[in-house]
């Protein structure tokens, strides 16, 4: 099943399929390691519901839901 990263619930895991978005944001996502094939787990949401914290390539990254919406994922767990 594929869906975008912003719709993941806490604890859900997946593999990055496609990264979209405007050039600058997309580059930033790539630079931080969100590239096709990377495994991601959603750790938690901030107290106000946004941004989200994910574990990727062994470290913690935070990004907003609007930015996470550019990342299409294959759900693994």
């Amino acid at each position: 099943m594929t869906k975008t990263l912003d719709t993941f619930v806490v604890g859900q895991q997946g593999v990055v399929k496609i990264v979209n978005g405007e050039r600058k944001i997309k580059r930033r996502l790539f630079d931080m390691g969100i590239t096709p094939g990377a495994h991601i787990m959603v750790r938690k949401l901030a107290p106000l519901g946004d941004p989200m914290e994910i574990t990727i390539r062994g470290y913690e990254l935070t990004l907003r839901k609007v930015e996470a919406a550019f990342v299409t994922m294959e759900v693994t767990k």
């Binding site: 944001i25 930033r28 914290e53 990254l61 990004l63 907003r64 930015e67």
Partner: peptide
């Protein structure tokens, strides 16, 4: 502006 940031240990 976007907010894509590392959270250090």
């Amino acid at each position: 502006p976007p907010f894509i940031m590392e959270l250090p240990a």
